[in-house]
Simulated scan of single mutants.
Amino acid sequence: MSAQQIAALVQAALASFKHEAPPEGSTRGSPWSEARVLSQLAKLKDSLVTPYPQRFVVKDNHEQMTKHPPDEADYWVVAETNDYLEFYDPRTHEFGLADRGTDDALPSTIGVRGDLIGVFCAR
């Protein structure tokens, strides 16, 4: 996939987003209000970057967290915040969240995968 194709996927996800409250009793705690979701959506839009490939350390589960040497994979970064990167995995067709890491360390995935907006809201 190309950066343009990834950007088009991101734009399509944003264009098709419609907030729907979850059914009563289907969540733990209180579901987010529409205002809170739309606030996060605005932050996501501000965090978008031109997609670029990045190597990641894969730490999505306990086995991967303790593996030596750790698994690594290449994903497309689509959004950046101070602490996190949101990426797109073209093999699984899902978005994910990663800790940016420090200095020269590769960013590490943290086991959050799913749709563009849900993943961003999980950070």
Results as ranks from 00 to 15, higher is better:
Leu97Gly: 00
Leu116Glu: 06
Pro107Arg: 11
Asp99Pro: 12
Phe95His: 06
Leu85Ile: 08
His68Ile: 10
Glu72His: 00
Leu116Asn: 04
Gly96Arg: 05
Arg113Ala: 02
Pro70Ala: 07
Asp83Met: 13
Met65Asp: 06
Gly96Leu: 04
Leu97Asn: 02
Met65Thr: 04
Phe95Ser: 04
Gly111Gln: 00
Ile117Leu: 12
His93Arg: 13
Arg91Tyr: 08
Ala122Met: 06
Ala122Ser: 14
Asp115Trp: 01
Arg100His: 10
Asp83Leu: 14
Asp104His: 10
Tyr75Val: 10
Thr109Glu: 05
Arg123Cys: 03
Leu97Thr: 02
Leu106Asp: 07
Ile110His: 00
Phe120Trp: 04
Pro69His: 06
Pro70Ser: 03
Glu72Thr: 05
Ser108Gly: 07
Cys121Pro: 03
Gly118Phe: 03
Val78Ser: 09
Gly114Ile: 01
Asp83Glu: 15
Asp104Tyr: 10
Asp104Trp: 06
Glu72Asn: 03
Arg123His: 02
Thr92Ser: 14
Asp74Leu: 10
Phe120Asp: 05
Pro107Tyr: 13
Asp99Arg: 13
Leu116Lys: 02
Asp83Val: 12
Leu116Pro: 03
Asp89Val: 02
Asp83Ala: 14
Phe87Cys: 11
Asp103Cys: 09
Ala98Gly: 07
Asp89Ile: 03
Asp99Gln: 13
Glu72Trp: 00
Glu86Trp: 10
Thr92Ile: 11
Asp115Leu: 04
His93Gln: 14
Lys67Leu: 14
Gly101Trp: 15
Arg91Trp: 02
Tyr75Asn: 09
Asp83Asn: 15
Gly118His: 02
Arg91Gln: 10
Glu86Val: 15
Gly118Lys: 05
Glu80Pro: 08
Pro69Asn: 09
His93Ala: 13
Met65Asn: 04
Ile117Tyr: 05
His68Cys: 08
